[in-house]
Amino acid sequence: MRLFTHNMLSSNIKGVANGFPLRIEVDQVVEKQVDFNPDFLKNMFPKLEWKALVDAARTMGYTELPEEADSSMLESEEFLRKLHHALLELHLEEGALVCPETGRKFPVNKGIPNMLLHEDEV
């Protein structure tokens, strides 16, 4: 699971008012290089919950993102490279995603989050 996915995922357990962001429990992080696509970064930026991304990246061991960001920073190649790395190259390979309200853990194994709910959660 990469961090742009984390920025999209939300706990959808019945009764949970705000299931975002899911807290990340890290057992293993891997990094994989992918092609740089500024269009994707610029498109994603307005939709990102920045603080959630910064916290998630930090949890994954990457601390280069600024605490605050605004769209003017998209003009900076250096910023885009950092954003690219954070969103697309860090993978939570093993660990869990934790619902911020209920504490329910969604396991992440071999890079795959399992977001299925139990019957009493829907």
Binding site: M1, R2, M8, N12, G19, F20, N114, L116, V122
Partner: peptide, 17 residues
């Protein structure tokens, strides 16, 4: 990039895609 989830109850924030 893939995850196990139910199409009837997507675990996604609104309007992200």
């Amino acid at each position: 990039e893939a995850l196990v989830a139910d199409a009837v109850n997507l675990p996604y924030r609104t309007g992200f895609g």
